[in-house]
Design a protein around this nucleic acid. Structure first.
Lengths: 149, 149
DNA sequence: CCTATTTAAATGTATATACAATTAATGTAT
DNA sequence: ATACATTAATTGTATATACATTTAAATAGG
């Protein structure tokens, strides 16, 4: 459905302004749906993302600031997200011997297990939630990659 | 830049999963930049959006639940956002005579003035922030409208 | 008319985002 | 070696998001 109808607004004069609103609105749609998959596993979307970052390095650890760098939301707070995951025993924290300011984070067996359980479900979800053909999705990816400059 | 490089991740196997991550990441990029315009006016992006909804009705009032309906983030809390705007004297609240459960919200002169001041700036921002040609932006809008099904 | 249900808004609580400030460790320059 | 700047992580605070609960008013049915 056209964004103007969904938010009951008069047509945009300007395609750029429409695109900004469209991106914000589509994001909300996505995250709302996404949360439904993660909630039964007691994970937020960004917590899931941190686990995936950690799995990408496993069995090597990664520092808090490296996690921050790779997070989807750069302004999010890796330190506190890691703390939440630690409480749930999905990650381990260890002081880095080389540089005692740094903290090495590793995903635990439990963390890997939960990612494993979610793998197929998330993949199906991502396909279902985007009502586009394969070539349209590829087009969208190209546009988004270009958009950010 | 390709999303894989920006978040230092190995290439996605699946275009749909890449698109979901790409949308989340692009949203973060947008909102981070957007906040910089609104901050000097003591507004958050969603508060700005509520003001625009109110201007769309002005001089007619609109109820809190109608605002909620039209908000970009459906799960946000219109009641509390309106309260914040009221403290800043950008909106007025009046009990609805027809139905005392409802509350009529109207944008004030001050609210309109601030929107007026932001108008050109936001329009320029929206164009600058999206590094795409006009036809690419239109393509993006079509894909996003279709994506939500 | 009275009770039950529905609806509108507000409130409570947990998590996340945004950004400033702090603390502790490391690096650098004189 | 000491002082100063930089870096990594944590902590503080305000706002926003997500969702459940509460309160009060309106509506529907007997």
């Amino acid at each position: 459905m056209k964004i103007e109808d969904e938010i009951r607004q008069k047509p945009f004069k300007d395609a750029y302004s429409k695109a900004v609103v469209n991106l914000l609105y589509t994001h909300s749609y996505l995250v709302t749906e996404q949360s439904k998959i993660f909630k039964p596993h007691d994970l937020s979307p960004e917590q899931y993302n941190v686990l995936r970052i950690l799995r990408g390095q496993h069995p090597e650890p990664i520092t808090v600031s490296s996690i921050q760098d790779r997070m989807l939301n750069k302004m999010s707070n890796a330190s506190r997200l890691v703390e939440k995951l630690k409480i749930k025993k999905m990650v381990e924290r260890k002081e880095c011997a080389m540089d005692r300011r740094q903290v090495d984070i590793t995903i635990t067996g439990k963390g890997l297990e939960i990612l494993e359980q979610l793998e197929e479900e998330v993949k199906k979800f991502n396909k279902r939630i985007l009502n586009l053909s394969k070539s349209e999705v590829e087009q969208l990816n190209d546009l988004l990659d270009k958009l950010r400059g």
